[in-house]
Amino acid sequence: MYPQQIHQYVRRFFIENNCPILRENEHFINVQLTIEMDKKIMNRPFYWKYVESTGDEPNPAQLTLITDKNRLTESIAGEVVHYGSPRLSQLFRVTNELGSFVQMYEKPPASQVPAQIILTPWVGVNYKITYSSHRTQETLYSLGINLMTGMIINGFQESISRLDLESTISANTFHLPYTIKPLRALERLDAVIENQIQQDDHTWAEEAQVRQQRDIRVLDYFYEGIEDKPETYESEKKAIEEQYKTKIRVEIINGGLFYLKSM
């Protein structure tokens, strides 16, 4: 992530969370946090407890983030953020927390206003699959399912990101009631993911198994001929099993209900 991208990200984050920007240029940003955002990111629960119990005037903090310290010519006191810095990681987490579930309606093009527009309901879900043993690999799947027909498409997020969506339905626009319930739709998408996992190449897991067996053989050799194996044998063996233990994890990043015209 380049400093410019980080700056854009931080800027949008605070605007979307209603934190006014007090001062900024391309390399730093100074914002007034809202009470909610202060509680989320400033890590001062005792202050807020105090304010709430005394009824004091709440005074949410201001935050200055320096997004490109190499280009900053002004002398600004603030936190330097870069990809991997704790502050940015925290904002990523908060973004996830505040951007997990949406209900969106496609906006009709301005030219088409008189006609009635019917929208089709969809459920869209962004999945992350993690394969892990002593190594890891992740894959994202963005799936969408049409709640009328049950048709499933891959790359859903990419397809809708170019559409004009809003959180309330426009005048003169209607949507069909769904025939497939959203939770049932979610189950179908889960099944697609499970199927995908079954079709994937799992050489990684086999390799981990081979390595595990080899390491256990080495360990056995060390304790060969010892009748009562000491505790360390068992703990080493357990460690090797954990080291190469193969796991598949499925998480949902975010998802929602979408009422669309164009798909």
Binding site: F13, T95, F101, Q103, N254
Partner: peptide, 18 residues
């Protein structure tokens, strides 16, 4: 429901971190 912009930002970050 949550904010659409944050929803998109979140997906983009996940793609970046993948």
């Amino acid at each position: 429901w949550d904010n659409w912009t944050l929803y998109k930002m979140c997906y983009d970050v996940e793609k970046l971190k993948l």
